[in-house]
Amino acid sequence: MKPCYIYSAVSISAQHTFDSGLGLLEPLALQPNKVNAHHPLYKSYIPPAALRRMATGVKMGVTAGKKALENANIIQPDAIVIGTGMGCIEDTETFLNAIIKNDEAYLTPTAFIQSTHNTVGAQIALGLQCKAYNNTYVHGALSFESALLDGLLQVEDDSASTVLVGGLDELGKEFIDYIDLIEDKNEGITVPFSEGASFFVLGAIKQQHAVQLKAIKTFSALTLENVRSVFMAFLKENACPPETIDALILGHNGSKYDHYYTEAASCFPKTTVQLKYKQCIGEYFTASAFGLYLGVTLLKNQDLPSLLTCGDTPKKPLKISIIYNQYNGRDHSLILLSL
């Protein structure tokens, strides 16, 4: 079994992350309910003939994917694996509204074609003329993690020497308001709904300062009582006692299910730094891909952004990190990184 390293990490988010690392020196304030990503100039990355049909998510994915490959000096990956919770909701809304408005008449195919969940993976393959393995996961808050596991499997068993893995979701224009409408106003999510794309290149050969993706585990359902035993088992499987974990990256979104993070944090000593990030980038099904972006950047730069840390931040080298996410008490994921 081969080890799996992360060669590059790129993120488009509600902050200036695309151009400048964590981009949190001058944080952008978020609107309360929903927030668009801080978009790069897509014209610089995508030819006009392709760009003219692309909705926000496709633009974000293709651009973040392109930059991740460039940063890793890879022209053609051996696999492209994408995770997206809501898929291409913008074009889905466009086509569905056209059906309703025109009562099934005068419909054109572009929005339908682009609404297919695998559009981003397909457009990246088309742009690169990449005939390799191509897959798309669409499982709510585990969409990105499923894609990451697929990539890890392929590097480990040597069926791919490099894999482009990405997680992305676009906000859309209509459906998000319905989701916001039914969110519990007292106990529900308090950070804004948002969008973003975080892309990574995985590979088997150790490069200088490369962060290793050691393990990933997901659970469809997990009771609060079982969080501790699941964490302990995960640490044991990977031969990392709690005190070896330098940073714990948590997906707090302000809802009553944040208790899960409190429980998880209680598994670790005070010397483990805790970080949360959704107050800066908002919540969406693949927000945890930003969590991984944060983890990788943290280990690479050895820099703790004070906006994200909670409690004491002891000064010490950051070598091992765990990223834990869940959504409304379901779809739990644990990712282990080491330097």
């Binding site: 003939a49 049909r53 005068y106 419909l107 054109t108 195919p109 572009t110 074609i113």
Partner: peptide, 17 residues
């Protein structure tokens, strides 16, 4: 103009509409 088969379908709907 570099149009393709998907554009052709769009134009057919335009002719009809």
């Amino acid at each position: 103009l570099g149009l393709d088969s998907i554009d052709a379908l769009e134009l057919m709907v335009m002719l009809d509409k």
